[in-house]
Amino acid sequence: MSETLAEPYVTFPPTQAELPYDDGIPMESQRHKMQMDLLIDTFGTWLEQQQDGYASGNIFVYFSLAQLKNQDFRGPDFFGVLGVPKGERRSWVVWEEGKGPDVVIELLSPNTAQTDKNEKKLIYQNQMRVPDYFWFDPFNPDDWAGFSLKHGVYEPITPNAENRLVSQATGLSLLRWQGSYKGVETTWLRWATLEGELLPTAEEKERELANQAQELASQAQELASQAQELANHAQELASQAEQRAERAELQLQQTARKLLQSGMTVTQVAELTGLAESEVEQLRV
């Protein structure tokens, strides 16, 4: 008598649809929320030019099953991932996506600064192995720093000659920008190219495109005006040429009449003036 072996019970890791994605705790301040939005917004316009990639903030990033067991959920203020399909996520689940973030930014506050600079930094270094990690205090812009993962250990990123922090993982840089965002004038942390050109927000990009369209329309109108001026000038030249031709014709006819009156034949006058004999004949009347 043969025995039927029971199939082993396999437990699959939970998916993002089954996992919590928000702890319900609001960000430290309105400026922290605006700073996060600015980083996501500008990184997002850059991703529009890329084939793939994802950026978000303040949602959980799941990087290990042990983390699930301990309910040690982590929600970076900003993170970006390259080389993954675009699209909405409820949370970032490493075992679903196949990789973790390429860059993480934490926004410091009096309540989180020590954790962001120590505990979270070690998690991003040792467990999540995030290639580039930055922090920035929206209310104290001098407190900013960046770290690049080298041989498994974070090494400080030295600001370049233009005082920008370069992210090797993204090929972009971070700079402190004095300006107005959503009506708040202060020093913001912004993404830029390696040459220092700011990545625009969606609103700035739309405004730039509108300005370019307006400029092109103005140029087209100016070209049309110039074309009309050229057409008018050409018409004036043609009119002047026609008037000169008419005067020359009259002078030639007057000359032909005088020659006829002097006794020359029609044939002689035609040969001398270049007029047809029929035209000269009409002048005799």
Rank of each mutant, 00 (worst) to 15 (best):
D37I: 13
A161E: 15
G75W: 04
S180Q: 15
A6F: 12
P138S: 00
L252Q: 04
D72S: 14
Q35D: 07
K120A: 05
A113C: 01
A220T: 15
L82I: 07
N126K: 12
D22C: 15
T267L: 01
Q240E: 13
N118A: 13
E88K: 15
R207P: 06
M264Y: 00
D143G: 06
R129M: 13
Q228P: 06
E119M: 11
Q168G: 13
D23A: 09
A217G: 04
F60G: 07
G44E: 15
G87E: 14
A217Q: 15
Q228W: 03
E208D: 04
W92H: 10
A234V: 08
G53W: 11
A238I: 10
A241N: 11
A234Y: 08
G179D: 01
V153M: 00
L47D: 02
A17H: 14
V130S: 08
K99Q: 14
I40E: 10
Q228R: 01
P138V: 07
N111A: 09
A113S: 00
E281T: 04
L39Q: 13
N232G: 07
A241Y: 02
L237P: 03
D143S: 04
A210N: 09
S173N: 02
N163P: 07
W135H: 06
W144Q: 13
W144P: 03
T115P: 01
A210Q: 10
F73L: 12
I123P: 05
A231S: 03
Y124P: 10
L283Y: 02
S262M: 00
K99M: 12
G171D: 04
V285Q: 07
K120W: 03
A145S: 10
M264W: 00
D22A: 03
T193V: 05
E246R: 09
A276F: 08
G87L: 10
T4R: 10
G152P: 09
Q221A: 10
E48C: 09
L19R: 02
A234S: 11
P131N: 02
T265Y: 01
N211L: 15
T186S: 05
V81P: 02
D72H: 08
S278E: 09
T42C: 08
R164L: 14
F43L: 08
D23L: 06
K86D: 14
W177L: 03
